[in-house]
């Protein structure tokens, strides 16, 4: 039990770590690819969508892949 929980928490941290890397790219480049409102937004708008893109990097990534194909 303790082992499984410990592993789950590690996976959760790993997920967040990837999310942090993804989000930096996303707020500066990725977001503009599917939302034309983004390039015109002020700089602090990027700060506002940063936490969400760390947490939701998987659905955003899937969406960007679909957009490409």
């Amino acid at each position: 039990m303790a082992g499984i929980i410990s592993l789950a928490v590690d996976i959760f941290f790993l997920y967040l770590a990837i999310g942090v890397l993804f989000s930096i790219w996303f707020v500066f480049a990725g977001a503009a690819k599917f939302d034309e409102g983004v390039p015109k937004a002020p700089w602090h708008f990027r700060l506002i969508i940063l936490p969400g893109s760390i947490l939701l990097w998987v659905p955003l990534f899937i969406k960007l892949l679909k957009k490409k194909s």
Binding site: A31, F34, D35, G37, V38, F45, I48, I49, P51, G52, L55, L56, P59, L60, K63
Partner: peptide
């Protein structure tokens, strides 16, 4: 709660889609 708070901006409703 953190998921809800961080997706409360209009940007998220538009880009996640209304269902999600």
């Amino acid at each position: 709660l953190v998921l809800m708070a961080t997706t409360s901006h209009d940007f998220w409703l538009k880009n996640l889609g209304p269902k999600v």
